[in-house]
Amino acid sequence: MIDVELPKLNNNDTSYVLVEWLVDDGTEVTTGQPLVVIETSKAQEEIESPGEGVLHSLVKPGQDCRPGQVIAHVFASAEERAEFVRNGEASADAAEHDQPPASGLLITKDAQALVDEHGLSEDVLRGVGRKVIRRTDVEALLARGEPTDTAEARELPQWQRAVGAVVSESMRTIPAAAAYVRVDVDEALALGRQVSDRGGTPFGLPELLVAAVARRHAGHPLFFARLLDDGNVHIPPTADVGVTMDLGKGLFVPVVRDAAAVGAERLGELLMEYRIKALRGAFRASELTDANIMVALHNTEGVVLATPIVFPGQTCVVSLGGTEERLVLDGEGRPVASRYVHIGLVYDHRVVNGRDAMAFLQALKADLESPTVLDVAAG
């Protein structure tokens, strides 16, 4: 018998919802075959079979599940599965797969308890606008109550509630400090245009900042570290850089894995692919997990400074503000326009001290002001 164990799909979630089984109970499956669809707060992910055999599921559609939970078994034969069932060893909530109600809604067990307690109708639940109704959705409906004549109650979408949970955890657990540096970007913008022309994909300050951050992994490993409960830190072998993206479909933080080894053209292509997925809300959960540092893009015109939060499990986040212009004197004393941005660093003061933070920022500034070091081919 092989266990189908649910992996950790999203660092921000402690539970998920099983949306649907793609294979019926008692069906023969092969290694790598998609078995089930799991929904996180950010995306839906298919879980594949870890081996060959006959499927026996343990969790119904619409039920909550958690990382590490065994949601099914794969037996070597139908006879072995039948023996398992006869012996009464199957989980008490093993699923005969109930069909969803006529409304098409899937209601988790915890949510159903609240629905029954308060007598909520299917019409009310449809107002949530989600196929899978969780306990938090029902709690939000109950908290909303009846709108008054002078105020409108509005439910926050699931993704915003997930963001809120992360922000609250960050503010509660991470003693953060912040610092900023002004960076002249005329040369960086010129290099970005060259790479764009060469590769055919937009390449600008966000891509250059990701490359600059990744390049500093070897010299500043603590900025990529994860603080352990015993006061030690785990230093990852590569710079896996999360990049914030919000194009109206929610905040996503896709990850550029081993970003220091990604060539300039490929980095531009990858971030463009991520922007399209952010616009469509089409990320796989695996694309949104396990970043060890974050680049927060606040580069909308007119934004000067930004102070993002440090994600739990990370040590720092680097922010990029909008591009501004100022007049400076050239070598002959004539006024010329020069463009600059502010780069911010928010860091966990338990791991990094101010002196090291200033050195890290100065290193990023040096790379962006002499950016040819960032125009590298894939390693």
Rank of each mutant, 00 (worst) to 15 (best):
K8S: 10
G26L: 04
V36R: 02
E46A: 09
H56Y: 12
S57G: 11
L58V: 03
P61Q: 02
G62A: 05
R66S: 13
S77A: 11
A78M: 09
D93K: 12
E96Y: 12
E96L: 14
T108W: 13
D110Y: 13
A111Y: 11
A113Q: 14
L125Q: 03
L125Y: 03
R130D: 11
K131L: 14
A140C: 09
R144A: 15
E146G: 11
E146K: 11
T148P: 04
R154C: 12
V166M: 15
E169P: 06
S170F: 08
A176E: 14
A179I: 06
V185C: 03
A188H: 00
L189M: 08
D197W: 10
G200C: 05
P206W: 03
E207I: 00
A225D: 07
G231T: 08
I235T: 05
I235M: 10
F252P: 04
A260N: 01
V262P: 01
E273M: 07
R280P: 05
R284M: 12
A285E: 07
A291I: 04
L297T: 05
E301C: 08
A306K: 00
T315C: 08
T315L: 04
C316P: 02
V318P: 01
R326F: 08
R326Q: 10
L327I: 13
V328A: 13
D330W: 01
G331Y: 01
V346K: 05
D348A: 03
H349N: 13
D356Y: 14
A357T: 02
A359L: 15
F360H: 02
S370Q: 13
